[in-house]
Nucleic acid binder design. Structure first.
Length: 412
DNA sequence: GATCAGTCGCGTACCACACGCCGAA
DNA sequence: CGTTCGGCGTGTGGTACGCGACTGA
């Protein structure tokens, strides 16, 4: 039994919605995402059956288990025999596809009894008839580097698909279930995508507009993670030496997260990576946000050592399941299974353990984060809740008030 | 391109007072 | 050392206001 649905808390969570950052059962997934046109645009995928907290990116056909990139990397990335397991890419979908439709895009879907059968029954109770027109699924082309849904090897560092989440010019378009890739090349991410908007590509494309809508959520999250991490969480990465592989120096990372950053963030000649960061001016977070949402300009580009890394913070965020890595401030352009703190010396088991520790520490810290206001003293809150006010200000007991939280009436 | 007015969103100050904290007895 | 007392600072929520960003003329 996996984790329970974040919505109903009853059924087993099956799909992961990044826009909502929630794990949902299929029933709630359809209920929630059939609410309106915007929610239907949320891109979802299966939830990792190992960590139960991250969107799955591949399905291990040998183990019949869906895995996020991290779990996939941990489980298959070593020199163990499992590294030869065949894995099938798990595509994202939007809209409210039926279980049968999900089975059509995920051939293994019916192989998961707790998913297919049970939820099929639940889905049958719902009356959503907009599946045909509004359901799309997006190939995680970053995982489809070979143009084949079958993945047998973890991406190597040398794999130039690091630009995967950079917008491949045409392959990024959501594809209807019965659509086939126009060519094998379509699935190959374009390297060093410049971020320039190609005229005509995105125009008059409702499907793609839908996809863009979903990107907004992702980009917001990326923004939070990117700048939040560089300010507060970078310490963790620094401690583990991981951020060095991203920014090279602390100063670079700090300046990248500076809300008052003006002009380019650039640094070169770092100990590990050569950073060519180009970032448009941003005077505040809002600007940074809009900047990240921009589809016309790349805002950060990091060229790694030699040919191993070429990380592009393009502002174009594909709904790839690089999840945790993105959240660590790394672009989704990172190759599959390669955390941002990817060591240039993967042969070292010690460093591998260090990376694992880094991942664990980051996740723990991430979970500990709470952005909502916390009430330290419930008794004071209870008093404030019933205290009378005038224009929002507390008034002396007995004075004339215009707002009474208890009666919700005005005294005059 | 520069300027101005209007709009929007976000952050913060303000209020009273019960309560937590801390030093003194 | 443990308990009690008194004083002081803190925190609580809804609203108004200021400021910066954005947009259109």
């Amino acid at each position: 039994m996996g984790y329970l649905c974040d919505f109903c808390g009853d059924q087993r969570a099956v799909v992961y919605c990044r826009s909502d950052a929630a794990c949902l059962c299929l029933s709630c997934d359809r209920n929630v995402h059939s609410a309106n046109a915007l929610s239907r645009r949320h891109s979802r995928t299966l939830v990792c059956e190992r960590c139960n907290s991250e969107p799955a990116s591949v399905q291990c056909t040998e183990e019949s288990i869906s895995l996020c990139q991290n779990c996939d990397w941990l489980g298959h990335g070593t020199a163990s025999s499992s590294s030869t397991h065949k894995r099938q890419t798990i595509n994202c979908y939007t809209g409210c596809p039926s279980s049968a439709e999900l089975s059509s895009i995920w051939s293994f879907f019916s192989d998961i009894p707790s998913m297919g059968e049970k939820c099929e029954q639940e889905l049958g109770l719902m009356s959503i008839n907009e599946n045909r027109n509004n359901s799309t699924w997006v190939p995680l082309e970053s995982q489809n580097v070979s143009g084949s849904p079958q993945v047998t090897d973890l991406p190597s560092k040398d794999r130039s698909s690091v630009g995967a989440s950079s917008m491949p010019e045409s392959s990024s378009k959501p594809r209807l279930p019965d659509q086939q890739p126009e060519s094998a090349d379509e699935c190959i991410p374009k390297l060093n995508w410049s971020g320039k908007k190609s005229p005509g590509i995105f125009e008059d494309d409702d499907l793609y507009n839908d996809f863009n809508m979903d990107e907004v959520d992702l980009e917001l999250e990326n923004y939070e993670e990117l700048f939040g991490m560089t300010l507060s969480h970078s310490e963790d990465l620094f401690e583990n030496g991981g951020i060095d592989s991203l920014f090279g120096t602390k100063e670079v990372a700090a300046s990248a997260g500076n809300s008052n950053c003006q002009g380019a963030v650039a640094a070169e000649g770092s100990s590990i990576g050569l950073v060519n960061a180009v970032q448009p001016a941003c005077s505040n977070a809002a600007s940074a946000d809009s900047m990240l949402s921009s589809k016309t300009e790349p805002f950060l580009r990091i060229t790694g050592r030699q040919s191993q890394s070429n990380i592009s913070f393009s502002g174009i965020s594909k709904d790839s399941s690089t999840g945790d890595y993105q959240e660590c401030g790394a672009s989704s352009t990172l190759p599959i299974g390669e955390p941002p703190w990817y060591s240039p010396c993967p042969e070292s088991s010690l460093q591998y353990a260090s990376r694992s520790n880094a991942v664990m520490r980051y996740r723990e810290k991430k979970k500990a984060r709470k952005f909502e206001k916390s009430v330290r003293y419930a008794s004071r809150k209870a008093r404030a809740d019933i205290r009378k006010r005038v224009k929002g200000r507390f008034v002396k007991a007995g004075d004339v008030y215009d707002y009474d939280p208890l009666s919700q009436t005005r005294s005059y």
